[in-house]
Write a protein that binds this DNA or RNA. Structure first.
Length: 627
DNA sequence: GCAAGGTC
């Protein structure tokens, strides 16, 4: 019988796929790595007929990239970093996993790649192929690639029966990113550490004269740039005075305040003239000009992605992005929630979501809510979630798998589980419904509006406890055309205020929108620039803000003073690389040209930076003296 | 000792 080895990106996928292909009849063997298992069964592939199959996995990348020995830290002039030979490396864990693959493939006839169907997965597939060929050259030409986007059994069967080949263009694109990130990162990190490390070290009074690392990374710098940018906008902010008119009318024993439709104006005299006009024309009498009443809804959330999870854990639970992602990872490993790294905000149509809701019906906190959704009496019954626009073709939105009851003793995991579950139940609920009334008053030639909301059905809000939507005070009972005596009519002034410092939740949004990092790495970049002492967390009242340090501000301004064509601290460079990678994937550019162009650019920037390096030191010294 | 990207 022919022998087929299948390799997935992680054990959870290997286990699930083996279970489906074998009809639940597979046997499990250990591998040298405790997280990796080998699953044996028989299956009939189109290319091999009835075969003896071993399904195993890697755990992410199987190889790493580094400069060769001769070009290690301090061993060569920095510019050589841009064209030094690159070697593949393996950590001890990777070595064990590679050994397992080589052993399993030694007597194999076919190799089938089951890594995630995204760009990185394609590259990991290529790493697996290279490793397998080291022990079995005859596999060359007998490598297939399964195309799948979730783990529903019919879908997996279809993938097994319709294999494709690895997409070399996607592999090339990833290799390009790796090489450019490595060379640019290593070169500028060594340069900055040599130039500023001892200076910063002395200033910060760090012990045993240890020099801090001052790193450059294609993601680290734009992340820092966002924070510094906000900081500068606040620092340079000049408040501007404005004037406006506000009127109010009686409402029961209280009043209803109406806002001027012009908002506010920055010219006092204009407002004063308008105010006089109104007063002359109408005295203290206004007229109801319009009354609009309409149903309104507050939408339930979209299915949960990683970025949304991190943003909301930061906003609602005051957890750092790193902490929430780590907790989610643990919950996934324990089998409580689905895979936590996903960009998908649309559920596959044949998923049994009701069964997942049912799972939650025994919970003390939201069990009754879940049960009511399924019972279907009352306005709030199970409704298929809204569909977002993103599908990473690899993982479904984050959702709870089983109820954990009181089974979690780690506080962070408990809170993240609660968030994921409440979010999921909210997704499967009705929108919240209300009624909004808008009244327009005319006073002289000017219009003023007031708005009232009655929440009629809370629906998902009952389980999504962090979101608020409240009934406001009712508008007074008046009809169109009616005249009303004003309780007050005032000309007021105010001034514009600066934006707040950056929150972590805003930073995540900015990074995501600008393509800086991925769902899995955004939290790490934010963590990294704190470790490097470029930014610091600062608590004001109950809110935590991210504030750049002297070093962080100096780096951004220092490079600005040098005047590189594409600023390191802006997202443009990274975005341009991303576009080039897409062109490699579509076959419109080749890897060698893109690498050459990008490395050339960094070489030029390095040349310019080193001739103007004194500007970096000056900037640091100047900012140090005024901070 | 340096990057960013996977994953445990």
């Amino acid at each position: 019988m022919p022998r087929v080895v299948c390799v997935a990106e992680k054990n959870s996928i290997a286990k699930a796929v083996a279970g489906i292909l074998s009809g639940g009849r597979c046997s499990r063997r250990d591998s040298p790595n405790k997280y990796i298992k080998n699953y044996d069964f028989t299956f009939s592939f189109g290319f091999s007929g009835s075969s003896s199959v071993t399904m195993t996995s890697v755990a992410g990348h199987l190889t790493g990239l580094d400069l060769d020995q001769a070009h290690g830290w301090g061993k060569c002039p920095i510019p050589q970093v841009f064209d030094a030979p690159i070697v593949d490396t393996r950590t001890k864990d990777q070595q064990k996993i590679a050994d397992n693959i080589k052993k399993e493939c030694r007597n194999a006839d076919y190799l089938m790649i089951w890594t995630d169907c995204d760009r990185e997965g394609e590259y990991i597939g290529w790493e697996i192929v290279q490793t397998a060929l080291q022990s079995n050259q005859s596999l060359q030409g007998n490598v297939y690639r399964a195309i799948f986007s979730h783990l529903e059994s019919g879908h997996i069967m279809h993938a097994a029966r319709n294999p494709k080949r690895l997409d070399q263009r996607a592999v090339d694109a990833v290799r390009t990113r790796m090489e450019v990130d490595l060379r640019s990162g290593v070169a500028f990190t060594r340069f900055l550490t040599e130039l500023l490390g001892s200076k910063v070290g002395r200033d910060s009074g760090s012990k045993n004269d240890q020099r801090p690392i001052i790193s450059y990374g294609t993601c680290q710098f734009p992340t820092l740039g966002f924070v510094v940018d906000r900081f500068e906008r606040i620092r340079k902010f000049v408040p501007e005075k404005f004037w406006f008119i506000q009127v109010s009318i009686p409402n029961d024993n209280d009043k209803t305040v109406f806002q001027w439709e012009r908002g506010h104006l920055f010219d006092r005299l204009s407002v004063a003239v308008i105010y006089e006009l109104c007063l002359e024309a109408s005295g203290n009498i206004a007229r109801v000009a319009d009354l609009k009443s309409k149903p309104t809804t507050k939408w339930r959330p979209l299915p949960l992605t990683t970025v949304e999870l991190q943003k909301n854990c930061s906003r609602f639970l005051k957890m750092s992005a790193k902490t929430s992602l780590d907790a989610a990872e643990k919950l996934y490993q324990k089998g409580y929630i689905s895979y936590p790294r996903t960009e998908t905000d649309i559920f596959p149509p044949n998923m049994d979501l009701q069964a997942l809701v049912q799972q939650q019906s025994s919970d003390r906190r939201w069990g009754e809510y879940a049960q009511n959704l399924l019972n279907g009496n009352g306005p709030n019954c199970f409704k298929w979630p809204r569909a977002g626009k993103n599908d990473d073709k690899a993982h479904p939105p984050i959702h709870p798998i089983v109820s954990c009851g009181e089974g979690l003793d780690n506080e962070n995991e408990k809170r993240v589980y609660e968030y994921v579950t409440r979010h999921f139940l909210a997704c499967c609920s009705e929108d919240s419904k209300g009624h909004s009334t808008t009244m327009v008053l005319h006073w002289g030639p000017e219009a003023f509006t007031a708005n009232g909301i009655v929440v009629l059905e809370r629906n998902f809000l009952d389980v999504y406890v962090w979101m608020k939507w409240e009934t406001t005070k009712q508008l007074p009972n008046l009809s169109v055309g009616q005249e009303v005596e004003l309780l007050s009519y005032l000309m007021k002034d105010g001034q514009t205020s600066p934006p707040n410092q950056m929150t972590e939740s805003e930073l995540i949004l900015l990074m995501d929108a600008n393509g800086i990092g991925t769902d899995a790495t955004i939290a790490e970049h934010i963590e990294k620039i704190q470790q490097r002492d470029y930014i610091k967390k600062k608590k004001v009242n109950k809110q935590t803000y991210l504030i750049p340090t002297t070093l962080g501000i100096s780096l951004v301004h220092g490079f600005e003073a040098i005047g590189l064509e594409d600023s390191f601290a802006k997202p443009f460079l990274r975005r341009q690389m991303e576009l080039d990678l897409k062109l490699i994937c579509s076959g419109n550019k080749n890897r060698a040209d893109v690498v050459k162009d990008l490395i050339n650019k960094y070489q030029n920037y390095y040349g310019l930076t080193s001739t103007k390096q004194v500007k970096l030191i000056e900037t640091y010294t100047n900012i140090k003296s005024i901070m």
